[in-house]
Amino acid sequence: MSAMRKRRFNPDRDVKEWSGPSIPYDILKEAFVALVAVGCLVLLLAVVFSSPDEHAVTLKTWSTADPVDFAQTAITQLDGTSPVATYGPPYNSTPGAAQHIGFFEPAQWLGTHQAVDTAKDFVLGPLQTLPGDAAVHQAVSEYEAASSAQRQAWTSAYEKAVADAKDVNGTLQVPPGPYGPVGTIIARLTSMAQSGALDGALSGQGQFYNTNYTKPLLFIASGNYLADLAGHQHLQGDQWGMMNETGNYPGQAWLWLYTMWYQVAPMNSSSNADLEVWGIMMVLTLVLIFLPFIPILRSVPRWSRVYRLIWRDHYRRLAQSRVARPQSVSATVEPTS
């Protein structure tokens, strides 16, 4: 206190502590009443509105609903052009893929920690787990034994062909072309996905227990199917989707500022948008934490005069006491009997 008194009194930092009258106030009773009231409110909301639970998308539902999108995604996993294959850290070390602001490149510095090899993990590996399918095992062996130039020729040819693929009653039909074993590989992967076996192969990772869904999620998120479903629910990033919930449920409205930055220039067209928005939000969070130290900002409450309304009884009494005792500003407070 004595140290503080030596500084000039700043109304936005310092207070004259209250030594005036007090009132009885039962904080535990208040808390109990609030507990019951909020309990009733939550109970009412739960009974009336329940909660949303949209089924998860599986590789099975995706490949069944849209085998063409699945096959078009699968070939990019095989030839290494998918969003995951070219993601960079933490999934792989694609040069220049990590987001950066100037020299600040934290993802690059930390490197690959959740290694994903899309061709091996998403396509070739799962196919090798199929029992008794000589054709696909031969196709995989042929693909793996080929030179990289040969593989690229096959996958390029397949990418061209699959662009015109058709979904005939749930079966993938790809126009013929010089794509060698790749046609068998993607066709079998699609039927494996439609049977549900690919979900098991990617989720299980060769173990009985598994709680890590990184690989199947990355595969599913590479296609258009999941994104289209999200777009219909207004959940896309450019739809302020971070705030939204499925259906008509309220979502995370408290993320309004975070999601807003993605909508404005230059972040709305930047390839480093995530890092830029995170940087802005970190700075703003620090500003909020250290608001009491920041001149001008910490004066806003006093200038706004909203406090005059919150403490209006106090200011009314203060005004009355000044009218009653105009000289009392510097007088001491008189005790009553």
Partner: peptide
């Protein structure tokens, strides 16, 4: 967003168990 900050290296939002 998490990966861009580098935190994705050890805080994997796709890992349900974690």
């Amino acid at each position: 967003g998490i990966n861009a900050t580098g935190a994705g290296a050890f805080w994997n939002v796709l890992n349900f168990g974690q």
